[in-house]
């Protein structure tokens, strides 16, 4: 294990970013989100949850897929895909890292999504163990150890040092390039911190959430539960919960006329909470907000696991718990439909 004084962190960021683009939590206009680090930038490593998750780096909110050029009656297709240069994604929490596995199963399954794959392969992921989880965190429920995430490199941080452990070949390469900034040691400090963190996690209010109902019940029985109506009543049909979610994977493909002879086809995040989600020429198969709301949670807790060997499409990051304007969320759904009520 290696360690570096917290005062020297900017040197570390500068050193990494000199070699490869470095994406990490930055504070912009008061909020922490992943962004491209430049010297002098205000970093936000200590913020537990960035507003948007780290998935943006592989699956951006909007991205151009292809361009078309028209000349009279001729149309030429312009492949805009370029080789993605290696980059570093720094400070990913255990939940967000687990979310990559959820996304991989969708985007890397046959037929492979080459846009996603190129970015995923080019990336060295540095994960960051949590030290002060908060009440909305329930990663433990999904078997995630917030005190020991993997990735290419894992870091821990306390008030004095940042600790660094390489896990993979990619990780070793990154380590080599910044090794001169580090000293040896820190195993004991990390161990102590991990024990502390795990103790806190045990006590978190959602850590004992019980998902067995969703594992052991017929799909249609869950689908037909009358409670969906009440659960969805206050939902605004905004996309907040889906857009801050690290595992939400839906996108829409659209086109626009960029100039008289050019058409750009792009994709952008979509949300099953939106009224035109999966709209087809015959109309829409979900016409009420109850149906859309149900889709979100059925997908996370039933459909996705059904297709992916039981893996849930939720990692317990708690972003939807914090950000839903009307305080509706997956925990309330789980508890209402199947979990133990703790009162």
């Amino acid at each position: 294990m290696l360690k570096i004084k917290v005062q020297d962190l900017n040197k570390l960021f500068d050193a990494i970013s000199e070699k490869e683009p470095l994406y990490m939590p930055l504070e912009k206009a008061g909020e922490a989100n992943y962004g491209l680090y430049k010297t002098g930038e205000k970093t936000a490593l200590d913020v537990l949850k960035t507003v948007k998750s780290a998935k943006d780096l592989f699956f951006p909110q909007s991205e151009t897929i292809v361009k078309f050029k028209t000349e009279g009656k001729n149309i030429t297709v312009e492949d805009i895909r370029e080789e993605v240069k290696p980059f570093v994604l720094f400070g990913v929490k255990a939940c967000d890292f687990k979310a990559f596995e959820v996304l991989d199963k969708v985007f890397l399954a046959d037929p492979v999504d080459t846009y996603y794959q190129a970015k995923r392969n080019a990336c060295t992921v540095v994960t960051f163990a949590c030290r002060r989880p908060e009440e909305s965190c329930f990663c433990k429920v999904f078997g995630i150890d917030a005190a020991n995430p993997v990735g290419d490199v894992t870091i821990w941080k306390d008030d004095e040092n940042l600790y660094w452990r390489e896990n993979t070949e990619k990780g070793s390469k990154l380590t080599e390039s910044v090794r001169y900034l580090f000293a040896e040691g820190g195993e004991k400090d990390v161990q102590n911190q991990q024990e502390e963190t795990r103790k806190i996690i045990e006590k978190l209010p959602f850590s004992s959430l019980d998902l067995s109902y969703f594992e052991n019940t017929e799909m249609m029985d869950i689908f037909n539960r009358p409670e969906w109506q009440k659960l969805s009543e206050a939902c605004l049909a905004c996309g907040t919960c889906t857009f801050v979610c690290p595992t939400c994977q839906c996108f829409d493909i659209r086109e626009f006329k960029a100039s008289n002879d050019q058409i750009i086809r792009y994709r952008c995040w979509d949300s099953c909470m939106y009224s035109d989600f999966t709209q087809m020429s015959h109309g829409n198969n979900r016409t009420t907000q109850m149906q859309r709301y149900r889709q979100r949670f059925m997908h996370k807790l039933v459909y996705y696991p059904e297709n992916n060997g039981g893996l849930f499409s939720c990692v317990g990051c708690g972003r939807c718990v914090n950000k839903c304007p009307q305080k509706l969320n997956i925990v309330k759904v789980v508890k209402t439909l199947g979990g133990k009520k703790d009162d």
Binding site: K28, A29, V51, K52, L236, A237, C238, G239
Partner: peptide
């Protein structure tokens, strides 16, 4: 505004 994720919460509420 560059932080906006177009979640539409502001509009829908």
């Amino acid at each position: 505004l560059s932080k906006c994720i177009r979640c539409n919460a502001c509009r829908n509420v």
